[in-house]
Structure formats: structure tokens, C-alpha cells
Computed example of a mutant assay.
Amino acid sequence: MKNLRVIYVAILLGLSGCVSHQSEGNMNLANSRWYMSADDYQIADIKLPAFHLEETQQGYKISGSTGCNNFFASASWDGKQLSLTQPIAMTRMICAAPLNKIEMEFMQAVEQPIIRDGETLRLTNGAVFKRIPNKS
């Protein structure tokens, strides 16, 4: 009887792991807008990176701002990671020192996949992007 309980508990734990794994992959990125949280930057009145994802037949189209320049690329989403196709197209305006630093850090970080972290997206450098709620 004790062995049956152990097996039953193991099956339930296994199934609950599958359910939580499924729900993690259900984040819908179609036509979503994202902005970098200012938690990592204690700079007042600085425009931080933000982007928009548009679903296409091939995956996603991403466009946004580094805080100074605009960027454009295609991207793919596997439910856990958003990978931008390299090279990324970008405008080339000269940025002020703080914006230039943020832009360089952002562009280096998006060379690696952007990782899903709950309901946010996280760059490899630790910067967090939060979703802008859709207007109803």
C-alpha cells in the first residue's frame, strides 16, 4: 500500500510539472509592446529601450528604440527565448554619453536570446522588459 502511495505521489508531481511547463510556453507575444524597466538604471528623464513585436508567417518582426536609435530585425520565439536574427538593422544617430552606454549594453545583450522570466523578458545583462498592456 505504501508503494502505491509513493507511485501515486510521483505521478501527480510529474503531471503537475508538465502542466506548469505547458503554461510557461503559452506567453503570446503577437502584437505586444515592451519597455525596459528603470529598476537597473537610476537616471532621471532618460528614454530607455523599448520594442514592439509583430507576428509574421516566418516568426516575428521586432522594431523599437535603443533609447537613442531605432532598430529593426526578425525574431523567433520558442516559448522560453526570443532570438533576434543578426545583424540587426539600426539608425546611426550620435547619442549623449548615458544613452550611448545604455544603447551599447542593449545591443550587445540582444546578440544573445532574450529569456522569458515569468511575465517579463530578461536580457543576458540582467535588464528586464515589462509588457505594456494592450488597450481594450
Rank of each mutant, 00 (worst) to 15 (best):
I94F: 15
L12T: 08
C95V: 07
D78C: 08
T56C: 04
I11F: 02
P98Q: 01
D45Y: 11
H21N: 12
I94W: 13
S65M: 06
I94L: 15
Q58T: 04
M107I: 06
L53A: 08
I11G: 02
I62V: 09
D78W: 10
M27K: 14
A97C: 04
V19E: 10
M107N: 15
A89Y: 06
D40K: 00
A97P: 00
N26H: 14
K47D: 11
S23H: 14
A44V: 13
C18T: 14
A10P: 12
N69C: 07
S32R: 00
M27R: 15
N26W: 11
E54Q: 13
W77P: 04
A75L: 05
Q57K: 07
M104W: 04
M93D: 03
N70M: 08
K80A: 04
E54W: 02
H21M: 13
S63W: 01
L48W: 08
S74F: 07
N26T: 11
Q57V: 00
N28V: 14
N26P: 02
V6I: 13
G14L: 11
F71G: 03
K80S: 08
W77C: 06
M27D: 01
I7E: 13
S32K: 04
A38G: 03
G59F: 01
E54A: 10
F51L: 07
A73I: 12
G14A: 04
G79A: 08
M36G: 02
G64V: 04
K47A: 12
N100Q: 09
N70E: 12
L99C: 02
L29H: 09
L82P: 08
G25S: 10
C95R: 13
T91C: 11
F72G: 05
S37Y: 03
R5C: 02
T66P: 01
M36T: 10
N69E: 06
N70R: 15
L82M: 11
Q81P: 02
P98N: 01
N69K: 11
V6L: 13
R33P: 00
T91H: 12
S65V: 12
F51S: 13
E103Y: 07
Q58Y: 04
C68A: 11
I88N: 10
I7S: 13
